[in-house]
């Protein structure tokens, strides 16, 4: 089914998506509509235009393809499914996501993947083709974040304070240059073959979707950042 969003507000558009029985939905003229596909499961939604904040919040299995940019808080508390963005993404992408994947061809804003966590067979993944802003993976508790920096060779593809408060999961940065000002609660090393096995499949998928060369992406080395304990703040307290 095709839905023209031009004359609809977000509530009307969301209702149309919820009511639609078709598995495949195409939305055209999307322009800042918020909360699209919130909590949605088992649909494939293609969006032309720029959806508003909180696209796919609490997403529970549906797949969303956006041919353009997205705004903030994409995939907030997402549980399952996939969001594939051909443009760029705003701040707080993948906040507290627990499962599924968000692939972004371009750059993302600040605070992406904050408090991402994993649980049983759920292991969320964010792959960023371009660069990421500061506070990437803050408080990360699980899952994988990959930043490829395809448009920024010879530079660190993330902003400041990457992985502060991190206590689980992994961050991969494709870079020749070591990220700066990392917290002493994380370990940063050059990814070895074992580490890279974690991301080969998803990078393959990324390259297929966005038409990039897998060989070229993998030709450069990656830094991998992990917490140095899963309870880094244990020593902080004195019982009173």
């Amino acid at each position: 089914m095709k839905i023209d969003a031009l004359e609809l507000n977000f509530h009307q558009l969301n209702n149309k998506i919820k009511e639609c029985q078709d598995e495949k939905i195409k939305i055209v003229n999307c322009c800042g509509h918020r909360y699209l596909a919130s909590g949605s499961s088992s649909k494939i939604i293609e969006i032309e235009g720029v959806p508003g904040n909180a696209l796919g919040c609490y997403l529970d299995g549906s797949e969303i393809f956006v041919n353009n940019n997205v705004q903030d808080a994409t995939g907030d508390t997402m549980n399952d499914g996939g969001i594939y963005i051909y443009g760029m993404a705003g701040d707080a992408t993948g906040y507290a996501m627990r499962g599924g994947e968000i692939l972004i061809h371009g750059d993302i804003g600040y605070r992406a993947g904050i408090h991402m966590k994993e649980y049983q067979d759920k292991k969320p993944v964010i792959v960023v083709g371009g660069t990421a802003g500061s506070f990437l993976g803050e408080y990360q508790a699980g899952g994988i974040i990959v930043v490829l920096g395809l448009n920024c060779e010879n530079k660190i593809p993330v902003g400041n304070f990457c992985g502060v408060g991190m206590h689980g999961g992994k961050i991969f940065l494709r870079s020749d240059v070591r990220p700066k000002n990392l917290s002493d609660k994380v370990v940063c090393k050059i990814a070895d073959e074992g580490d890279l096995n974690d991301i080969k499949d998803i990078i393959n998928k990324f390259c297929n979707i966005f038409n990039e060369s897998y060989e070229q992406v993998m030709s450069k080395s990656f830094y991998v950042i992990t917490p140095n304990s899963n309870s880094p703040y244990k020593q902080l307290y004195t019982m009173n």
Binding site: E118, Y139, G142, G165, G168, N230, S231, Y233, K234
Partner: peptide, 10 residues
Amino acid sequence: IPKGADAISP
């Protein structure tokens, strides 16, 4: 969340 992992609410 996994067993034994810290639960931090920012």
